[in-house]
Amino acid sequence: MKRSSSLKLAFMGASALALTACDQPQDVAIFESVEQCSQQDGFDSNSCQQNMDLARQEHIAVAPKYSVIEDCEADFGAASCEIAPVQTQSGGSVFMPLMMGYMMGNMLSGNSRVATQPLYRSKDDPSNFRTADNQKVAGKTGLSTVPGKVAKAPTVKTSTLRRGGFGASAPSLRSFGG
């Protein structure tokens, strides 16, 4: 047979089906410093340092970015933002919140499904650590159990400077596919 043996259109026209991903709780560890991490039972300072370095690198990529420092401080509090090591296309400064801690897998449970990442504290909920995706993690350092989606790698959330830079070349045709 040279044709598809079956064909369904599950989403088009009809109302979209909600896809529920499996969300298993994950054991994580949260620290503010390498020293604090090293003092945790079962954690060695080498791994603590490696995960800190990784989180610091991620911090640059995933921290929310702002082109105005006041906007950043409005979300994260006074003196809680820093200049990001990137620039706008026109050479302007970019701001991001300070990294307040980091999350890694619980070395005792050998959990590798936890993405090491930076943590932040927002102005409106300063008692909790939050991920770069603004998901609440926990209020205390040390070991915690969090929903699976919280332990996932953060998406690169960013701030859009401009839109509309694509599309100008399109002549007004019914279709340009062809």
């Binding site: 970015k65 082109s67 990001a84 990137v86 620039q87 706008t88 296309q89 302007g92 970019v94 960013t158 701030s159 859009t160 400077l161 401009r162 839109r163 509309g164 830079g165 694509f166 599309g167």
Partner: peptide, 8 residues
Amino acid sequence: EDIGIDPD
């Protein structure tokens, strides 16, 4: 047309 660009 709605695609944007960020500082990076």
